[in-house]
Amino acid sequence: MSVLMEIAMFPTDVGESKSRYVAEVLKVIKDSGFEYQLTPMATIIEADNIKELTDLIPKMYEALEKMGVGRVYSVVKFDIRPGKKDRLKQKVKSVEKRLNIG
């Protein structure tokens, strides 16, 4: 099974720039060992099951909490597909192939 989770998580009470906080959340993702892809609007993480990813969410929040933030905004989406692997890369390759760029 392949589960992709797209997540955006950042504080809303710290001013305009969020990169310092997003970097701390990204450290948690990186330390998890899961494949991930940072995008300008969110981060996409791939795991073998939903539980692995849902267990990661509180850890991401705790990293922000340790930074002293008072309010956190988060949006999470899942794409679940049994019988597949490596979709973080394969989905992009499939589209690029159809565009003759991959």
Rank of each mutant, 00 (worst) to 15 (best):
E62D: 15
I7C: 01
V76G: 01
A47D: 01
G33N: 10
M5L: 05
K27P: 04
A47Q: 01
D55E: 09
R87T: 02
I101V: 13
G68Q: 12
A63W: 06
G33K: 15
D86Y: 03
A8N: 01
S94H: 13
T12S: 11
L99G: 10
G83D: 14
I45G: 01
T43V: 03
E65T: 13
G68W: 12
V95E: 14
K84V: 04
G68R: 13
L38N: 05
E46I: 14
K18V: 15
T12K: 01
S94T: 14
K30Q: 12
P58I: 03
K84Y: 09
M60K: 08
G15E: 03
K77L: 02
Q37R: 06
S32N: 15
L26Y: 13
G70N: 12
T12P: 06
S2R: 01
E96S: 09
L53N: 04
S19D: 05
G83S: 11
R81L: 13
L53C: 03
K66D: 07
G68F: 08
Y36F: 15
E62K: 12
A8V: 09
S2A: 06
D48I: 07
E35I: 03
E52Q: 09
V92E: 11
D79E: 14
E65R: 15
L88H: 05
K18Y: 11
V72Q: 00
F78G: 00
P40M: 08
I80T: 07
P58N: 05
R81P: 08
E24V: 06
D48G: 10
E24M: 10
